[in-house]
Computed example of a mutant assay.
Amino acid sequence: MKLKKFLISLLMITFAFSSIAEEKVLKDQNTEFSVYTGMFDFSDDGKKSNLIGFQHQNENLNRDTFLGNLSPITGFLFTADNAGYIYTGVQAQYKLGALNLTPSFTPGIYHEGDGKDLGHLIEFKSELQISLDLSKTSELGFSYNHISNASLGDKNPGANSYMFNLFKSF
């Protein structure tokens, strides 16, 4: 009788752990990483610079709102002029078949390095991204953003940038 209870208990524990592991695998597939490159402040001939960046999004933290499905994002970018921007904010994604339209808003901290002086440490990035599903776990996209300090500083020149994006979900 004790052996039977032991085997039933062992089976239940194994089932519970396998269910938790399967749920974790499904949740982990909702993590998306993006690598992007492009031109920082392309509209300013004197201060434009190549850029590279990385962004993370976790769909497990998304929320349905009146604006659509919103999810948090975190990332950073660096320019060839040693400027950097570290940010965290929110994005919405609207699927139109294989095409995705993704607006985002991300406050962050900017360091000018040898690049453009944007007028303040705190800057805000507004971005619009268009991407195409390559597979269930990959997208290729193009994005445009504007970084500005919303007149927090004495000057607010802003920066307009474009990027080519590669997304991979895990």
Rank of each mutant, 00 (worst) to 15 (best):
S18T: 06
S143T: 02
L7K: 03
T106A: 14
D133T: 05
E127L: 05
S143M: 00
R63P: 04
N50K: 07
Q29W: 03
S151F: 10
F42D: 02
K24S: 14
E112S: 13
S131P: 06
K24A: 15
H146R: 01
M163W: 03
D41P: 02
F40R: 07
I52M: 12
V25F: 08
A21Y: 12
E139P: 02
L132P: 01
L70G: 12
P157W: 01
H146L: 03
T106F: 11
S71R: 14
F105R: 02
D114A: 13
P157A: 00
K116G: 02
D45Y: 06
I20C: 04
F15R: 02
I86L: 13
N160Q: 04
N62Q: 15
M39W: 13
F42P: 07
G153T: 06
M163Q: 12
L61P: 09
G46N: 10
L26V: 11
K95S: 14
D45V: 00
P72R: 01
I86G: 15
G89R: 03
F76R: 03
D45E: 08
S131W: 04
L77W: 10
H56F: 15
Q55W: 01
H146T: 01
I147Y: 04
N156C: 09
S19C: 10
F167W: 05
S34Q: 14
H56P: 07
S148T: 08
F42E: 07
S34L: 08
F6K: 10
Y36I: 02
F164E: 07
D45I: 01
G38A: 07
G68W: 06
L152Q: 03
D28S: 15
L67Q: 08
G115S: 05
E139V: 01
L101C: 00
